[in-house]
Structure formats: structure tokens, C-alpha cells
């Protein structure tokens, strides 16, 4: 697998849409690179899980929903928060623990929230946000709206009880939710094959008589199309879907973890990078003459500037005041 495959069908008439996808992927990648550097410089603390390599999943999927749909994610969610509509500065400020952060500096990297854009976290316990997503979908049915819930989680979550309890009830009650498994092959340092009896995540859906699909998670257009299908099923038929996107993370589990070592080889990582989702879209847009080198450079420049502005915003944002310690524990 040395030569990357062509992307899911590219239509010449949709150049502007592809440009948007490309720009979003470039933005969140640059954001994560700079976040990694800021972490190394001590500006970001705690756990910090970077998304580099997996951009096609969040970008493809989040372009397939409506602004009033709900999004839930795990703790590797900087990109999801940004693409869902959160200003990169508010996300970076949250990583910096500042008052201007999207959770007021009290959530941090793992707990990004943006109610205005229906981005509902940012959850740090593996698998625990699946029932929350089903709950939001339940509310959608309860109220008779056609809002859909998109729930991202890693493949390691499929072995935990909450996954099974939730899929069962979502199928039983016909809840409009898309369970999008970002299978990046490693739960921290444990390969899926060493943790699961069934290696194809999507096959778990048959236990619950649920629709399923698997998709190349390094192909942003394929992710977009697959999610669109699942979202339509949820919106029109109130049926949930288990969608498995096969992807790869380039970084360690968190900033504190090695990029490769005992659990995977450097060679494996280098080979996976040949499938880089950004490079694949970029090359195809050039090949199909849907974008010029100059336009790409211009886009990189814009993205660079946007991330620098996010860093500046975060850096200038004040620390939360001491009294913030005791606010937001209870709602009066």
C-alpha cells in the first residue's frame, strides 16, 4: 500500500465545497501542531490528546450535519469543537486554561463545550458519552423535532458496557443518532486486535439489528458521504447507525505518550502517513485542476495566520479570577 488510492468520487462542480474541507483539515492540523508546541513549552497542562492524522473523520462527518444537530465527542476533540463552530481562539484559550476559553478555563483539553453551536463535549471517560448522545437523541424524539445527534468515539470504547447498553436502547427506541467510531487502531498503546474478539467494529451493530457501514477514514469525501447517509436515516427514519471510520493517529495517545515504541513501529507510522488525508485531497484537487498551487499556498498562509491569532488570543486571555473556583458548581 505505497500509492494512496484515489478519493471517493470527486465532482468538478463542487470545488468550493472541497476547498472548505481542505481548509478545515489544514486549520485543525496546524492548530494541533501549534498546540503540541505550546504544550511542550508548558503553556498547556494536563492531558492533551492530539488529532493529527485523523482530520478527515471530523471534517467529513461534521460537514454532513445541520447546525441545529447535536455533537458529542470524546477527549480527542479539539478539531471537532472547531469544525462545529467554536472559534479556534476559544479552543486554544481553553487549552491554556484561560477565562476566554470555551469552557471558561475550567474544562481544559478534554472538556470543550459550546452550547451555542450544540457542541456538547468533550468527555473524558471512555465510552461514557455514548448514553449522553442517545439521551439527546431521545430528547429529539420526545419533542418531535428532526434533530440528529452525531457521536464520535474511539474504537477502544466498543468493549465497554456503556457502548452495548446504549446501542441496544438506541435501536430499541429508534433514536436518531449516528455512532461514529474513529478506529485509529490503538486504544492508548493496545492494538484493537489485542483488545477485541471481533476486529471489525461495524459488525457489532448486528447484535442490535442496527444499520452499519465502514468507511476509509483517511478519505474525507468518503466519510462525508457515509455520514450523510447515516444522518439521513436518522433524520427521516429515526434509526441509528454504527459507522466505522478507519483512520490513524500520528501522535502518541497523549502528549505524554511515545509516538511509537513497544506497541507500534516507526515503519508502520511512516507507511500510514502515505495515506495522509490532507495530502490525498490536495493532490487530487491539483490533479483534477480544481485548485492551483498558488491557491493552496494562499490557503496555508490564511490558516497559519488564523492559528497564530488563536494563540495570541489565548495568550492574552486573562486567567480565571480566584472566585471562579466556586462558581458553576450548582445552578441557583
Amino acid at each position: 500500500m505505497s500509492q494512496p488510492a484515489r478519493l471517493h468520487h470527486v465532482e468538478p462542480g463542487r470545488a468550493e465545497f472541497y476547498h472548505r474541507l481542505l481548509r478545515q483539515m489544514l486549520l485543525v492540523r496546524r492548530f494541533e501542531e501549534r498546540a503540541g508546541e505550546a504544550y511542550a513549552q508548558g503553556q498547556i497542562g494536563g492531558f492533551c490528546h492530539l488529532y493529527i492524522g485523523q482530520e478527515a473523520v471530523a471534517v467529513g462527518a461534521l460537514n454532513a450535519i445541520r447546525p441545529d444537530d447535536y455533537v458529542f465527542a470524546s477527549y480527542r476533540e479539539h478539531a471537532h469543537a472547531i469544525i462545529a463552530g467554536t472559534a479556534p481562539g476559544a479552543v486554544m484559550a481553553e487549552l491554556f486554561g484561560r477565562e476566554g476559553g470555551c469552557s471558561g478555563g475550567k474544562g481544559g483539553s478534554m472538556h470543550l463545550f459550546n452550547v451555542e453551536h450544540n457542541f456538547l463535549g468533550g468527555h473524558g471517560i471512555v465510552g461514557a458519552h455514548l448514553p449522553l448522545a442517545a439521551g439527546a437523541a431521545f430528547a429529539s424524539r420526545y419533542r418531535g423535532t428532526d434533530q440528529v445527534v452525531l457521536c464520535f468515539f474511539g474504537e477502544a470504547a466498543v468493549n465497554i458496557g456503556a457502548f452495548h447498553e446504549t446501542l441496544n436502547m438506541a435501536a430499541l427506541w429508534e433514536l436518531p443518532v449516528v455512532f461514529l467510531c474513529e478506529n485509529n487502531r490503538y486504544g492508548m498503546g493496545t492494538a484493537l486486535e489485542r483488545a477485541a474478539a471481533v476486529w471489525d467494529v461495524y459488525r457489532r451493530a448486528c447484535s442490535y439489528d442496527m444499520a452499519e457501514e465502514t468507511v476509509d477514514g483517511m478519505d474525507v469525501l468518503a466519510v462525508y458521504e457515509a455520514t450523510r447517509g447515516a444522518v439521513t436515516r436518522a433524520r427521516q427514519e429515526h434509526l441509528p447507525t454504527l459507522l466505522e471510520a478507519r483512520t490513524y493517529r500520528y501522535m502518541g495517545h497523549s502528549m505524554a505518550d511515545p509516538i511509537h515504541g513497544h506497541y507500534r513501529t516507526k515503519e508502520e507510522l511512516e507507511e500510514q502517513k502515505l495515506q495522509d488525508p490532507i495530502q490525498r485531497l490536495l493532490r487530487q484537487l491539483l490533479d483534477d485542476e480544481l485548485m492551483t498551487d498558488a491557491a493552496i499556498e494562499r490557503m496555508r498562509g490564511e490558516v497559519e495566520q488564523e492559528v497564530e491569532e488563536a494563540l495570541r488570543f489565548a495568550d492574552e486571555s486573562p486567567e480565571p479570577p480566584p472566585e471562579a473556583l466556586y462558581t458553576d458548581v450548582y445552578r441557583d
Partner: peptide, 11 residues
């Protein structure tokens, strides 16, 4: 080249 904080608890 600085010794970077490569884990949350690293001093």
C-alpha cells in the same frame, strides 16, 4: 533547545 514538558507531571 529546551527540555520540554513531555508529560503533565514532568518536572
Amino acid at each position: 533547545v529546551l527540555m520540554e514538558a513531555l508529560s503533565p507531571t514532568m518536572e
